[in-house]
Amino acid sequence: MRTAILASGRGSNLQALIKAYQSGSLPIRIVAVGSDSPGAGALMRAEEAGIPSRVFSINQYLHRQAQEADILNWMGENEVELLLLAGYMRVLSPSFMREVPFPILNIHPSLLPAFPGLHAQRQALEYGVKVSGCTVHFVDEGLDSGPIILQEAVPVLHEDTEESLSQRILAVEHRLYPEAVRLLALGQVKRSGRRVQILQQEELR
């Protein structure tokens, strides 16, 4: 699957995806990386991997719709079949979602539907939960509300800070996101409404 990735920050999940892609464990081809931040570390990671990148800084556009139209054109030019959000900090508009005919995936640092949005790890600590984790999900028109593909729990320790919990969750993210992408690309992800089933290889025959 020809895959584009959008990222806003340092790009550690992007790096995990690139590493899995370069090792041959992902049946995808990462054809482009985009960012809404000119200084994003993700852009440097793409350059080091030899993947073409492009900046869609919101300051370059008169309005959000123009930015999203540019992203849509960019994906069309690259014949994209799968879009992955890897720390992309902008919510895609409903009109954008309606224009995209292929899957969009995201990873979020909580066990959704708990603690959507920003600072999920801080939300978990403030609420006092004993278990948090991360979720790979399809992106829909809501905020971190799409059908769930994979989840993995991470215990919340009494001495945890937002930083320490974030780091432990991130280590799981780096493993879980490539696995979800692999399953999707192999046709093992079956979606029916909000329910997602992971098929075994023998069920595909």
Rank of each mutant, 00 (worst) to 15 (best):
I149D: 05
Q167G: 05
G142L: 09
S35A: 01
G41Q: 02
K19Q: 15
E81C: 13
Q22M: 10
A120V: 14
I104V: 09
E79T: 14
L14E: 10
L105S: 05
S110C: 08
R90W: 03
I30D: 08
V100F: 12
P52E: 07
F138E: 08
L26M: 08
G87F: 02
E159S: 11
E99Y: 06
L125G: 13
L62E: 15
E99T: 06
Y177K: 03
Q60W: 02
F138I: 01
R205W: 04
F96K: 04
E77K: 13
T161F: 11
P27S: 14
G39F: 01
P101Q: 12
K19L: 09
S166Q: 13
L204P: 09
H108D: 15
I51K: 10
Q15M: 06
G11M: 06
Q15C: 09
Q22F: 11
P109L: 09
A180S: 01
Q201K: 07
D160N: 05
S37Q: 07
L204A: 04
Q188C: 02
P52W: 04
V196P: 00
G146V: 12
A171K: 13
L170F: 09
S8I: 01
H108G: 12
M97G: 12
L105T: 00
L17H: 12
N13W: 01
Q60S: 11
R10H: 11
K190H: 03
A171N: 06
V55C: 08
L62K: 13
E81A: 14
L112I: 09
Y127K: 00
I198S: 07
G41R: 01
S57V: 00
V154F: 02
L186N: 07
T135M: 05
I107E: 07
T161M: 05
L111G: 13
A16F: 11
G187R: 02
Y177C: 03
A49S: 11
A49F: 12
G39N: 01
Q167L: 13
A42V: 06
G41P: 09
A185F: 00
Q197N: 02
L157D: 06
V139K: 04
Y177S: 02
L85W: 03
I149A: 01
I18M: 08
N73L: 10
L170I: 03
F56E: 08
L150P: 05
A20Y: 10
S53F: 08
P109H: 05
Y21W: 15
A180Y: 00
L17G: 10
S93K: 03
I149W: 01
L85F: 05
S132V: 07
Q121F: 08
A40I: 01
E68A: 04
C134A: 12
A7D: 14
V129N: 13
E173Y: 02
F56V: 00
Q65E: 13
G128V: 00
E81G: 15
L112Q: 10
E152S: 04
